[in-house]
């Protein structure tokens, strides 16, 4: 069991890195990676939200959306026991869960750890529209892959967040150096960041096949 969970983390960080091989969460990856400190803050916030999102969307998926006897809504409306709500409400319910969660995390942090709240600032509300959060919720509950257990889904969410944080940190290190070198005028800023990301992705490509 523990071995499987460790494999999931390694797979999400190196082999299926969300940013570098799945193209998720590129907006904050390029927007907030100028400085290492803000990259770190953003990474921690995203990892936190992704882990909790995985937990809650797993519960929503298994007990509200999927058809069957455990469906809570089916106890009130027996007509949906056969079909479930999976086709029509998946995307909407996930995005609402994420939006509410981010708001809640924001309020809790403001009350309990004001120092961290201040340092994250505007990045917190932006996490709602970060595609890696919705992406991990969708990946955890795709029908084609094997059905993930509660613990596996949680660990996958955490691992994906960790992978995002590592990619952000590496990128911010590169961009801090890039600010000091003489780059051709048209490539300055975002274009050179993309090309560097491409080279990083090439390096991470070497991990593919390590874990299935």
């Amino acid at each position: 069991m523990i071995k499987e969970l460790i494999l999931i983390i390694i797979s999400m960080v190196f082999v299926n890195n969300f940013v570098l091989s799945k193209f998720l969460g590129l907006c904050p990856f390029l927007g907030v990676s100028q400085k290492t400190s803000s990259a770190m803050g953003m990474g921690i916030a995203v990892t936190f939200v992704m882990t909790i999102t995985s937990v809650i969307t797993w519960i929503v998926y298994n007990y509200i959306l999927l058809p069957g006897d455990v469906n809570i809504v089916a106890k009130v409306f027996p007509s949906i026991r056969e079909t479930g709500l999976i086709e029509v409400l998946k995307t909407t319910s996930y995005i609402l869960v994420i939006a509410t969660l981010v708001q809640l995390v924001e309020m809790m942090m403001k009350k309990m750890v004001p120092a961290l709240y201040d340092s994250l600032g505007i990045y917190l509300p932006l996490i709602t529209t970060n595609c890696c959060v919705l992406g991990v919720a969708l990946l955890n509950t795709t029908d084609s892959a094997k059905h993930l257990g509660f613990l596996e889904a949680t660990v996958q969410g955490f691992g994906a967040g960790l992978g995002f944080t590592i990619a952000m940190l590496l990128m911010s290190g590169i961009r801090e150096r890039l600010a000091l070198v003489n780059i051709p005028q048209p490539l300055r800023g975002v274009p050179i960041a993309f090309i560097c990301t491409g080279l990083m992705a090439l390096a991470f490509f070497g991990f593919s096949g390590m874990v299935q």
Partner: peptide
């Protein structure tokens, strides 16, 4: 490699550079 992840980043980076160059 162009239809895999690294190629995507490099193509978009060069295209953005090209459009910047035209604007400049």
């Amino acid at each position: 490699v162009m239809i895999m992840a690294p190629g995507a980043f490099i193509v978009l980076g060069l295209l953005l550079g090209f459009f910047n160059w035209r604007k400049l």
